[in-house]
Write a protein that binds this DNA or RNA. Structure first.
Length: 863
RNA sequence: GGGCGUUUAGCUCAGUUGGGAGAGCGCUUCCCUUACAAGGAAGAGGUCGGCGGUUCGAGCCCGUCAACGCCCACCA
């Protein structure tokens, strides 16, 4: 076995072995109960970033544990075609050659995207393998592959037939750069400092006019009315009159509508139905017409008169200037408001009137809310349910059509002859009603439409496959809070509607990986850590351990590179501990036995009891998705108890001919169970060490440990306390590692030889006799529970130097005892606190006083 | 305008039934002891954001204030 731990060398070795073994497939546990997770599919354009690494490290921890517990565990991988993002990538390639997608045409363009996908799309799967994630590659899916495309079409057509998908001429969010409609949640709102311009619209009859206020003066070109609140006394008499639109001389009416807030601005609103959702609603209610003045490029249309052809921002300046020149501007005040930006490219979105496809979400929402409210699906941590409910209850219809070429084409055809529209599961070549030629719908679907079907489309639906029957609903969904609305909510809606059952039991929400300074990691800010670079430097195990250990439920994770280094050192520590175990087993395979020693020594019994206790607690924490706590517990147990204490104690047993076998067996059992427990978190190093310890593969053959409940023996706490006391004595008196002779009193029922061996090994102390010395003066004593060690000071340390230590200890103990006494003398405490708490407090005080007495005696004994 | 989160050791953060404050890194001192110096041992360092309340007892429960952060919103 190599003396040094080299993660990259080990990690290169195992993934292929694992994958070839078939152990990532649920079929390895054919009798097992199904347990399934579908991966949140990364964008096919993507490279693995810290968010993926965290997300998948958690899922792997879950799935590997379940696999070891005998479940038929499926972790299904795949990727998302990511409409806009992927199209943008290929368009940029074209742009480099001075072309646009329109130059080569739709078919050639889509071909080119597919080629790009084949060429570069696999990058992330290689990175997933490098991280050691145990996904079942035989079931890998892509949102645009044939099966999933069929599922998409089936869902679309069914919803259309049910009246839950419709085509409508409505205001949508338009990105003038991506040239497509966006859904509500693809728009990021950002507060900007703007201005509120008050403009006077003169009456057509008589003197004066009405003053409106707007933040977007350029839209006045599309005004077809002015609205006031029906109960506003200032304006109620004006309703029905007409005004003359400045600059364009259009005559428009004043109407009344309750959507107007009398408190805001002047209480009178200019109505631009084609470029504002609220105005659109007002126009529908009051019968105003719509005039489109901004086109899909973000430029002013012919309707804008002399401003025709201007960019919308340029028009804003020009219109304001013109209004001022001509004396229509009454006032301009500063005004902060939020402005929508395309979440893909950051361009300011333009509300635009256009023909789009929508999902009527109303009937889908109720079941999706009820499934969570009833606890059928459960968010972890629970608090996310609140924002989920709030969002769902205020959901508006979902705009699903996108003016892109890369995606699932909407299965609708329009007849050139009779103008009919047909929505169909199968491709249409001629119009079913008149036989005329048809043309296909240009638009494709929102990427999130296909993602919404992921938990069942990936299992083979709409076919009645064995996987659908066996693995739906899935067991756990692990994802970040940032896509609860985009993805989780929609999977719940679609899953419940089409499968009649929730798509997953538990929804585990983790935080964002942030940089060490707490900011969001981003390439542009230059503070993003690349997981693959960290993997090269520290190993995949170290990166995984760091992320999972940091994953406190629902909290963001600031990632410090030093933590990854600390994780690597943990791997090194485990490596060396295992090396110790291996090197002390001249017969390979001995520690591979599951058998517990029949007559364990005190330290063996102690560590086995602790192991049992920790295993139970660890498993419980993992079951509750408290990864940070779970890993913290195991890490500290392994390092502080097994490595720092037990292995040191075991060295005594190994040298003792009568106990060596038992000690080896205990070391073997403890190390084996540690490796198993650690394996879901750090699979590579544990697999490597497993192969050194025994035979076979941990992944393939090891079962999750279920140790018997054991109780620890007496005397171990005393030993540890005594050893620590002796070490502190050395440290405080700076006496290095010179041997110390002690006399031991009351060895807690354990053999004198045992004490001798352990104290010698752990504290370089020899026992020169039993019980207190005849002449106490000139000794100091160290107490550990009922056990006491007396140290002759002569020749060792300056007697007077021991005095301050004792005085300090007495002061501290006095303080503790005082507080305890105070508590106990409070009649209310005795009255109202539970009996066991009072008893515990009394025992504590007793102990304090006893210790105090001993310390005072000691002080006196110094002379 | 609503909603949520955070505030604990120098730094980054844990701390779920309210009962003697924790980790990693950093710092001090000692030690190359035959698994490991990528290590071991012993330490120093906290009015658990402020104020008020409930309780025998509060980092933990309630109220309030402050700072920072996030999400949602058709504020023309």
């Amino acid at each position: 076995m190599k003396p040094t731990y080299e993660p990259s060398e080990i990690e290169a070795r195992w993934y292929d072995v694992w994958e070839r073994s078939g152990a990532f497939r649920p079929e390895v546990n054919p009798e097992g109960e199904p347990f399934s997770i579908v991966i949140p599919p990364p964008n096919v354009t993507g490279v693995l970033h810290m968010g993926h690494a965290l997300n998948m490290s958690i899922q792997d921890a879950i799935i590997r544990r379940k696999r070891m517990q005998g479940y038929a565990a499926l972790w299904l991988p795949g990727s998302d075609h990511a409409g806009i993002a992927t199209q943008n990538v290929v368009e940029r390639e074209l742009a480099a050659e001075g072309m646009t997608r329109h130059d080569i045409g739709r078919e050639a363009f889509v071909d080119q995207v597919w080629q790009w996908k084949e060429r570069s799309g696999g990058q992330i799967t290689g990175q997933i393998r490098r991280m050691g994630f145990s996904t079942d590659w035989s079931r890998e899916r892509f949102t645009l592959d044939n099966g999933l495309s069929r599922a998409v079409r089936e869902v679309f057509v069914t919803l259309y037939e049910e009246g839950l998908i419709y085509r409508g001429y409505r205001i949508i969010n338009w990105c003038p750069r991506c040239h497509t409609a966006l859904s509500e949640i693809e728009v990021d709102h950002e507060d900007v400092a703007g201005e509120l311009v008050h403009i006077r619209y003169p009456f057509t009859e008589g003197e004066g006019g009405i003053v409106v206020a707007t933040t977007r003066v350029e839209t006045m070109l599309g005004d077809t009315g002015v609205a006031v609140h029906p109960d506003d006394p200032r304006y109620v008499d004006l309703v029905g009159r007409t005004v003359r639109l400045p600059l364009l001389d259009r005559v428009i009416p004043i109407v009344a509508d309750p959507a107007v807030d009398p408190e805001f601005g002047t209480g009178a609103v200019k109505v631009t139905p084609a470029h504002d959702p609220t105005d659109f609603d007002i126009a529908e209610r009051t019968g105003l017409e719509s005039i489109v003045v901004i086109d899909t490029e973000g430029n002013i249309t012919k309707e804008g008169g002399r401003f025709f052809g201007m960019d919308r921002l340029e028009a804003r300046e020009s219109v304001r200037h013109a209004l001022r020149e001509e004396g229509y501007v009454v006032a301009i005040e500063d005004h902060h408001h939020s402005v929508g930006h395309c979440s893909r490219c950051g361009t300011m979105v333009e509300p635009l009137l256009s023909n789009q496809w929508f999902v009527k979400v109303g009937p889908l929402v109720r079941p999706a809310i009820d499934a969570v409210r009833s606890g059928d699906s459960r968010f972890v941590p629970e608090r996310w349910e609140k924002s989920y409910f709030h969002w769902m209850e205020n959901l508006r219809d979902w705009c699903i059509s996108r003016q892109l070429w890369w995606g699932h084409r909407i299965p609708a055809w329009y007849c050139d002859e009779c103008d009919d529209m047909v929505v169909s599961r199968e491709d249409i070549v001629e119009c079913p009603s008149c036989g005329g030629s048809v043309r296909a719908e240009d638009d494709v679907l929102d990427t999130w439409f296909s993602s919404a079907l992921w938990p069942f489309s990936t299992l083979g639906w709409p076919e009645k496959t064995a996987d659908v029957a066996r693995f739906y609903p899935t067991s756990v969904l692990v994802t970040g809070f940032d896509i609860i609305y985009f993805w989780v909510a929609r999977m719940l809606m679609m899953g419940l509607h089409f499968m009649g059952e929730k798509p997953f039991d538990d929804i585990v929400i983790h935080g964002l990986v942030r940089s060490a300074d707490g900011r969001k990691m981003s390439k542009s800010a230059g503070n993003a850590l690349d997981p693959l670079e960290l993997v090269d430097q520290y190993g995949a195990d170290a990166v995984r351990l760091t992320l999972v250990q940091s994953a406190a439920p629902g909290h963001d994770i600031p990632l410090n590179e030093e933590w990854v280094d600390a994780s690597r050192r943990f791997g090194n520590k485990v490596w060396n501990a295992a090396r110790f175990v291996v090197e002390h087993n001249e017969v390979r395979g001995v520690p591979a036995t599951d058998g517990y020693p029949e007559e364990p020594g005190p330290e063996d019994a102690w560590i086995l009891a602790r192991l049992a206790e920790v295993t139970g607690a660890y498993d419980e924490l993992l079951r509750e998705y408290r990864f940070s706590d779970a890993v913290g517990l195991l890490y500290n147990f392994a390092w502080s108890e097994v490595f720092d204490w037990y292995i040191e104690m075991a060295k005594v047993g190994l040298k003792d001919g009568t106990r060596a076998a038992t000690t080896k067996q205990t070391l073997g059992v403890v190390m084996r169970d540690l490796l198993k427990l650690l394996h879901p978190i750090v699979p590579f190093v544990t697999e490597e060490l497993w192969s050194e310890l025994g035979d076979g593969s941990l992944l393939v053959s090891a079962r999750w440990p279920e140790p018997p409940a054991l109780s620890g023996p007496a005397g171990m706490a005393e030993l540890q306390e005594l050893v620590t006391g002796l070490r502190r004595f050395r440290s405080e008196h700076q006496i290095g590692n010179v041997p110390v002779d002690i006399l031991l009193e009351d060895p807690a029922g354990l053999a004198a030889e045992w004490w001798h061996g352990q104290l010698h090994a752990l504290a370089n102390a020899t026992i020169s006799g039993d019980g207190p010395p005849a002449e106490l003066v000139g000794h100091t004593r160290i107490h550990a529970g009922g056990v006491a060690a007396f140290i002759p000071l002569a020749g060792l340390v300056d007697v007077d130097a021991e005095r301050p230590r004792l005085e300090k200890a007495i002061a501290e103990m006095n303080d503790l005892a005082d507080r305890s006494r105070q508590k106990l003398s409070n009649p209310k405490f005795r009255d109202r606190a539970p009996a066991d708490v009072v008893a515990k407090e009394e025992a504590k005080l007793e102990e304090f006083e006893a210790t105090l007495l001993k310390l005072r005696t000691q002080l006196a004994e110094l002379g």
